[in-house]
Simulated scan of single mutants.
Amino acid sequence: MNGEPILTVRDVEVRFSVGGLADRIVGQPASILGVAGVSFDVARGETFALVGESGSGKTTLARAINGLQAVSAGSIRFEGDEVVGMARPAMRSLRRRMAMMFQDPVGSLSPRLTVGALIAEPFRIHGLNDRDLAVETRRLLALVGLPAEFADRYPHQLSGGQARRVGVARAIALDPALVIADEPTAGLDVSVQGEVLNLLNELRERLGLAMVVITHNLHVVHHVADRMAVMYLGRFVETGPTEAVFNAPRHPYTAALLSANPEPDPDKARARIALPAEVPSLLSRPTGCEFHTRCPWRQERCRSEPPRPAGRDDVGVSCHFPLKPGARPPAN
């Protein structure tokens, strides 16, 4: 990574309180770890992807980065400033530089406001009264590929792709340095997904944005991300440059996710690695390697000893027995 990272996350944990006194008496934990000690950096102009199944902790981590979710332990530094414990006035200023795109493209837009009012809203919230909002709205609509007349429409008059473009316009309105995009293609047709991904790539290059993309869609990751992290039960199990991880996954969970990813080229299709569908509960994490209950390659050591993260060629993996290229699950 060249230069000082714009975002530095170190050993971040997010805990959620669960149950009451009666539950604790019968042995239920007082809290669960939603994010369990993750660390990564994002460089200026880089796209970093967080990948994993639903419930893996991706969105919780994104909300923690943006200050929307309390952090139990660890450090999050953005442009040199500590986000964890930041006072509200400073957080308000930070959010001008760190924008967030939420999952639901239409549901995240107020149905009572026109597109023009929605795009101008960030300027009003941050007291930028010296801006010509009509001019700014036209500029931002043009940046995301929408005609100026869309300013008079309401969210219910937009397609999913158009609503997502409006969400992108809102996110970049105040010239942020970092955009956090939570499932940017969720609910969109495949052809529209490609348009949105191309738009995000174009804006990143034109505006010099850094991006954190949260998704379970590996086609999205391959299309936009420079580097990626695979999450399982709130932990990173594999991190590295996207091409390196896609070409030679070293963690069994990563290999299974990639094997389930549809591949239009039959010569590149991977043999499907079937996993038990049930993900362990955060209330009762497995001992040892937390993936061992679903892992086709598990050995006795995996049941009792947690793996330590190890790295090679910029790829980090938490596995006692990292996979070699082309590895196939052992026969039952």
Rank of each mutant, 00 (worst) to 15 (best):
G288S: 08
A310R: 15
G127T: 09
R165P: 01
E79V: 00
A43F: 06
V35A: 01
V18A: 04
V192L: 01
L143P: 00
R308P: 01
M231S: 00
P286H: 11
T47Q: 08
E300V: 09
R312I: 06
S318K: 05
A256L: 07
F48P: 01
T185K: 02
P105H: 13
R15Q: 14
S159K: 10
R112W: 08
V279R: 14
I119H: 11
H156L: 04
D265F: 10
T287G: 15
E243H: 12
K324D: 11
L174R: 10
T137L: 06
S72A: 15
V144F: 11
R298F: 12
G20D: 12
G194C: 09
H222I: 01
N201K: 15
V196M: 02
S56P: 00
V18K: 07
S39D: 07
V220L: 02
G57Q: 09
F150H: 14
S108F: 10
G326F: 14
A151W: 08
M1R: 11
L209D: 11
G45A: 12
L113P: 00
L33G: 10
G145E: 13
R77A: 15
D226F: 05
S304I: 07
A49F: 05
R96V: 14
I32H: 02
V35I: 14
I65S: 05
L199C: 05
M228E: 04
R294I: 04
A186N: 02
E46C: 04
A186H: 04
G3D: 12
T215K: 02
I172K: 08
H292A: 06
P296T: 11
R165L: 04
S259N: 09
P5C: 11
S39C: 04
A310G: 08
L188H: 10
I76E: 03
A244Q: 13
C295S: 05
I172M: 04
